[in-house]
Amino acid sequence: MTEAVATATELVPVLAQHAARVDAEAAFPHESVEALRAAGLFGLLVPAEHGGMGGDLGDLVDVAVLLAGGCLSTAMIWAMHCQQVDAVARHAGERLRGELLPRIAQEGYYLASVTTEPSKGGHLLTASSAIQVEDEDLVVRRSAPIVTGGEHADGFLITMRAGPDAPPNRLSLIHLDRSQTDAKVVRGWNPMGMRATRSVGMELAGTAAGHQVIGEPGGFRQIAVDSMIPAGHLAWASCWLGAARGGLDGLVSLIRSRKQPHNIAVDSDVVRHRLARARIDLELSGSYLLRIRDEVLRRRRTGATLDERSFQTRLDTLKVVCSELTLSAVDRLVQLGGAMNGYQRDAPVPLERHFRDLRSASLNYSNDRLLGAIGTHVLLEGAGRLFTPEDDL
Rank of each mutant, 00 (worst) to 15 (best):
L290H: 15
Q260S: 09
D269M: 13
R274D: 14
A278F: 06
G286D: 02
I280N: 07
S287N: 12
H262R: 09
D267K: 03
V270I: 04
D281L: 07
L282S: 13
N263L: 02
R291E: 12
R293C: 04
R279D: 15
G286P: 06
R293E: 09
Y288M: 09
S268V: 05
L289D: 10
R293F: 05
I292T: 14
V271H: 00
L282T: 10
R279M: 14
D267C: 00
S285M: 07
L282G: 09
I292N: 12
S268A: 06
L289R: 08
K259A: 06
I280K: 10
I264D: 00
Y288V: 11
R274E: 14
L290M: 13
V270N: 08
A265S: 03
S285P: 11
G286M: 00
R291V: 11
H273C: 07
A276T: 14
I280G: 07
Q260E: 01
P261R: 04
N263S: 06
G286R: 06
H273T: 12
K259N: 11
P261D: 02
S268E: 08
A276Q: 12
D281W: 10
I264P: 04
K259G: 00
S287F: 09
K259I: 00
I292W: 10
I280W: 14
R279S: 15
L282V: 10
S285G: 12
E283D: 13
G286L: 13
H262E: 07
R291I: 11
R274L: 14
L275R: 06
I292D: 14
R279V: 13
H273G: 01
K259D: 10
D267M: 04
I292G: 14
S268N: 06
L289V: 04
N263E: 10
E283P: 01
N263R: 00
D269S: 07
R274I: 03
N263F: 03
P261S: 02
L282A: 12
V271W: 04
H262K: 07
I292S: 12
H262I: 00
S287A: 15
R293L: 01
I264L: 01
A265Y: 01
K259R: 09
